[in-house]
Deep mutational scan, measured.
Amino acid sequence: MEVRTIKVFTTVDNINLHTQVVDMSMTYGQQFGPTYLDGADVTKIKPHNSHEGKTFYVLPNDDTLRVEAFEYYHTTDPSFLGRYMSALNHTKKWKYPQVNGLTSIKWADNNCYLATALLTLQQIELKFNPPALQDAYYRARAGEAANFCALILAYCNKTVGELGDVRETMSYLFQHANLDSCKRVLNVVCKTCGQQQTTLKGVEAVMYMGTLSYEQFKKGVQIPCTCGKQATKYLVQQESPFVMMSAPPAQYELKHGTFTCASEYTGNYQCGHYKHITSKETLYCIDGALLTKSSEYKGPITDVFYKENSYTTTIK
């Protein structure tokens, strides 16, 4: 009895394709271990004539594949690729409408935090270190965002349907971005203890939790000093293409032309909904596939993004 075979390709990165001759009487799992086709788990399936010449994702289970996976995804987590594939199996079914010149995501599976993050990423200057993220990001900007969303979920250790947080998501993504040249110098002034300067680099240099107003941050924000008295913390120097200011959701007025974009969060910790506000020729609110415009805006804002380049204080 002759062994019926077909020729397929296996890959971990969709760049390096490895030619395989597979036995049609055995499952993919018996031949390769966990195997995925377009995100779908085909591990328990036997090869079919229609699979001839198709590319299958496999887990990096030998040295060659491990090197290829690390170079593309910059992670050695053995569960990463499987999590990416199972997320992709959902995100490829989502709709990605162009809204006001940006790629958004039609609401499904509690994905409003991903839509808000995706919209924000198209408006701030950011370059990702893992080629996987950078490639998928370019495709997302062009309207094909399924891979990018699935990668975000995998890097953030999230599953489809789980509630997510924009600030946490951005923080994970910033860790995989090139923020080497970003720098922030802060000064804390206390009447009792004097003053202390701190220099922050990388992710810490672009994120701040405690106030939404970048102007206020430049002037000074009140913080408790270690001595128990009130101290003032203010920005001395900022070198970065953008800054992200966050605070627990509270009524906040966004003035046209003073910011790049913002995240609105309605609801409580267990259950809520994100919308995205962007400042173009007027203010726009993007909620999944829905767009509304207004000249002014007041609502429960939790993150505001500002364009920056270089700032030095005039406070002496």
Rank of each mutant, 00 (worst) to 15 (best):
L173A: 00
E71W: 02
Q20N: 14
L126Q: 01
G143F: 04
Y269L: 15
S86P: 05
T302F: 00
Q197N: 05
G288E: 00
I45F: 14
H74Q: 08
Q251N: 06
H18E: 15
V243P: 02
R83P: 02
V3T: 13
G220Y: 03
P60M: 01
N100M: 10
A231G: 03
F174G: 02
L200Q: 11
G202E: 10
T103S: 01
M207P: 06
M170Y: 00
C149D: 01
N147T: 10
Y57C: 08
N268Q: 03
L200E: 06
A145D: 03
T11K: 05
H176I: 02
I301R: 05
T76K: 10
I124F: 02
V58I: 11
K307W: 08
F80V: 08
L59R: 08
T313Y: 15
K106L: 14
A205L: 02
Q98Y: 14
H18G: 09
E168D: 10
K127P: 09
K293N: 11
G288N: 01
R167C: 02
Y155H: 10
Y36P: 02
T64E: 14
L235G: 04
T169V: 15
P97G: 11
E296M: 06
D23Y: 14
Y265R: 11
K275L: 03
I286W: 11
Y269D: 15
V3N: 13
N16I: 08
P249A: 09
E215F: 08
Y113W: 15
Y96T: 08
C193E: 04
K93N: 12
Y57H: 11
I286H: 07
F56V: 11
K7S: 13
E264Y: 00
Y269E: 15
K233F: 06
L163W: 04
T159R: 13
Y57S: 05
S86N: 14
L81K: 03
I45R: 13
D287G: 01
V3A: 12
Q222Y: 02
Y113M: 09
C271R: 13
R4C: 13
E296Q: 14
K191N: 12
T120V: 12
E264W: 02
K92H: 03
D135I: 07
T312D: 04
K158V: 03
I286C: 00
F56A: 06
A40E: 14
I286S: 00
F259C: 01
V243E: 01
Q270E: 15
H51W: 04
A117E: 01
E204K: 12
A150D: 06
T75P: 02
E264L: 05
K106M: 02
H48D: 14
N309F: 08
H74M: 07
A146K: 05
M170S: 03
H48V: 10
N147G: 10
G33K: 07
Y84I: 00
F32G: 06
K201N: 12
D109Q: 10
F259L: 04
K255N: 09
L65K: 11
Y306V: 03
A289I: 12
M244F: 03
I301V: 10
S104G: 13
L179P: 03
A145Q: 05
T260F: 00
V3H: 12
T11F: 06
I45W: 14
Q195M: 14
D135Q: 12
S294T: 12
L186D: 01
A250R: 11
V189Q: 08
K46C: 11
K298G: 04
A150F: 04
E239G: 01
A117K: 04
Q195T: 15
E253A: 13
N187C: 14
M85T: 04
Y306D: 04
A140W: 14
F174P: 05
D303Y: 01
S171P: 01
P34Q: 14
S310A: 14
M209T: 15
G33I: 08
F305I: 12
T313S: 14
L102T: 15
I315R: 15
A247C: 06
M24W: 05
V21G: 10
M24Q: 13
L163K: 12
T11D: 03
Y284R: 04
S86E: 15
E296G: 08
N129E: 07
E296H: 14
P248D: 15
I301G: 01
H273Q: 00
R139E: 12
T5I: 12
F259W: 03
Y297L: 01
L235M: 04
V8G: 06
N129Y: 07
P249K: 02
G39A: 14
P248I: 00
E215N: 02
A142E: 14
P60I: 02
K201E: 06
T313D: 07
V236H: 05
A177Q: 05
Q237C: 11
Q123V: 07
A40R: 11
T120R: 03
Y72V: 05
G202Q: 05
P60V: 10
Y73K: 07
C182S: 05
A247V: 02
P241E: 12
T198Q: 11
L81D: 04
Y265S: 09
R167Q: 10
L119T: 00
V221N: 05
E168R: 15
P78F: 10
N111R: 01
G143V: 04
N16H: 10
T19K: 13
G164D: 05
E239Q: 12
Y252Q: 03
P34G: 09
S263N: 15
E168M: 15
V203C: 09
